[in-house]
C-alpha cells in the first residue's frame, strides 16, 4: 500500500458516500443516472467475487464489502425508495453498447481464462466506461447539481490517483499490469472535460453548467 493508492481509495469512498448522502438528504435522485449505478454495481460484483477465494488484508476485504453494499444501497434508493424522483427521461444511454464490447474485449484480452480472472478483466473494462451514462445525462440536461459534480470529481480523481500508484509500483516493486493501466488511463481521460469545468467553475463557486 502506498499513499497514492490510499488517497485513491479514500476518494472512491468519499464519492460513494457523497452520492448516498445526497440522495438520502434531498430525498431525491434527480440528475443521477441509474444506469451508471447499475454498471457500477455490476463492476463491484464481478470484481469482488474473489472476496470468497482470496484474502489479502482486513482493509481489502472491508473495502470490498463497503463498495458492494453501498452500490446496492444506491440502486435501492434510485429504483425503489425514491423511484418517483428518478429522471428516467434523461437517462437514455443504451448500456448494451458498453456491456457487449466489454464482454467481447475481456474474452480477447485477459491474463488467464479462469472464471475469476475473466470476471475481473470484464470489471476493469466496464469500470472504465461505466460513468458514460451519467456524463451523457449531464450533457443532455446541460447542468449538474454542485453536489453531483463533487461526486463526479471524487470518482474521477480516484482512478487518476491509481495511475500515480501504478507508476510508483512500477519503479518500487517492478510491478505492471497492462490491462488495469490502459483501462485506467481511458477511464481518467473520460473525466477530463468534466475536470476542466469543475476546476474552472465549481471550485470558484459557480454552478456546473455546460457551455451553450
Amino acid at each position: 500500500m502506498n499513499i497514492f493508492r490510499l488517497l485513491g481509495d479514500i476518494c472512491h469512498l468519499v464519492a460513494i458516500i457523497v452520492l448516498l448522502l445526497k440522495i438520502w438528504k434531498t430525498r431525491s435522485c434527480a440528475g443521477i443516472s441509474g444506469k451508471s449505478q447499475i454498471l457500477f454495481a455490476l463492476v463491484y460484483t464481478t470484481r469482488y467475487v474473489d472476496l470468497f477465494f482470496t484474502y489479502v488484508s482486513l482493509y481489502n476485504s472491508v473495502m470490498k464489502v463497503i463498495f458492494l453494499a453501498s452500490s446496492y444501497a444506491t440502486l435501492y434508493l434510485i429504483y425503489v425508495k425514491f423511484k418517483a424522483t428518478y429522471d428516467f427521461n434523461h437517462d437514455t444511454f443504451r448500456i448494451e453498447f458498453l456491456l457487449i464490447p466489454c464482454v467481447i474485449l475481456s474474452l480477447l484480452i485477459t491474463h488467464d481464462y479462469s472464471p475469476v480472472e475473466l470476471l475481473w478483466t470484464f470489471s476493469i473494462y466496464l469500470e472504465a466506461v461505466a460513468i458514460l451514462p451519467q456524463l451523457f445525462m449531464v450533457s443532455k440536461t446541460g447542468e449538474a447539481e454542485t453536489i453531483t459534480s463533487h461526486y463526479l470529481f471524487a470518482l474521477g480523481a480516484y482512478r487518476a490517483l491509481y495511475i500515480v500508484n501504478w507508476i510508483y509500483r512500477y519503479y518500487t516493486e517492478s510491478f505492471i499490469d497492462g490491462i488495469a493501466v490502459v483501462a485506467g488511463i481511458i477511464q481518467t481521460i473520460l473525466y477530463a472535460d468534466f475536470f476542466y469545468l469543475y476546476i474552472t467553475k465549481v471550485l470558484k463557486g459557480k454552478d456546473f453548467k455546460l457551455p451553450a
Binding site: 481509495d9 472512491h12 489479502v56
Partner: peptide, 10 residues
C-alpha cells in the same frame, strides 16, 4: 517485470 492481476488493489 511482473505482469499479473493486482490482487491487493480494489
Amino acid at each position: 517485470y511482473q505482469r499479473y492481476r493486482p490482487k491487493d488493489e480494489l
